[in-house]
């Protein structure tokens, strides 16, 4: 085996470690926080009070109208300039969750709006409050509707986390860059990094299909 292939084989370990200890936890943490925020934003968008609707719309508009890389730089390089210093990991999680929230808020809003009016009627009929109706009746059905688009958002996020390498978070791609800088074998190592991303995304897609199959026992 030539040196190049041996080096590539040796790089696989650090890259998989980078994926398991960097990429995946970063994506999971950002997605969970982002989704919680998205739920809040979606409920504000759906509310009847303009005081709540307007900021939620503005938020979604700003996030969707600006590049993720710029958002990441604002948090990591911009905030310290005004005296707010956040370490790489938290700042990456912050930027990614704010970004995820902007995109998935629309998914959640659409899913809540897609739950038929009659479901609210039936819940209210039995005396449920607005909050209980959301919790017990509407959100479980909205979740079912939102699983496919949210899974897609999550897979997109896993790939987007490679940008965190630019703010010094040691994840899969930063590992690849470090090794490539050392060996100078850019082609082989970056293709290898791409293949590891691909493998992670294939695994996630399989998980997505399994989840959807489990949720199809009842149809909406």
């Amino acid at each position: 085996m030539s040196d190049g292939w041996t080096q590539a084989l040796h790089a696989l370990g650090p890259m998989i470690t980078g994926a398991l200890l960097g990429t995946v936890p970063l994506a999971l943490a950002s997605f969970s926080l982002g989704l919680a925020l998205a739920l809040g934003v979606a409920l504000m968008r759906l509310s009847r009070h303009r005081m709540l609707v307007a900021p939620a719309r503005a938020y979604v508009s700003v996030i969707r109208g600006t590049p993720l890389l710029v958002q990441l730089f604002v948090v990591f390089y911009g905030l310290p300039a005004v005296g707010i210093v956040i370490p790489p990991w938290p700042s990456a999680i912050l930027a990614f969750s704010l970004n995820v929230a902007g995109y998935t808020a629309e998914t959640v809003r659409a899913a809540v709006a897609a739950v038929p009016r009659g479901q609210w009627d039936a819940a209210y009929m039995m005396g449920m409050s607005h909050t209980m109706t959301l919790r017990k009746v509407v959100l479980p059905q909205a979740a079912r509707i939102a699983v496919p688009p949210l899974s897609n958002s999550f897979i997109a996020l896993v790939k987007d986390t490679s940008l965190a390498s630019l703010v010094l978070v040691t994840e899969l791609f930063r590992r690849a860059q470090q090794i490539a800088a050392f060996t100078q074998d850019f082609m082989r190592l970056y293709v290898e990094a791409a293949l590891v991303y691909w493998a992670v995304c294939l695994a996630l897609s399989a998980g997505q299909s399994a989840l959807e199959r489990r949720l199809t026992r009842y149809a909406i």
Partner: peptide
């Protein structure tokens, strides 16, 4: 108006059962 809900229960034309 919501107080009325504690007094009556409704059966809907299209049932409106909770599918989940």
């Amino acid at each position: 108006a919501p107080r009325l809900r504690h007094r009556s229960a409704m059966v809907f034309q299209h049932h409106n059962l909770f599918p989940h």
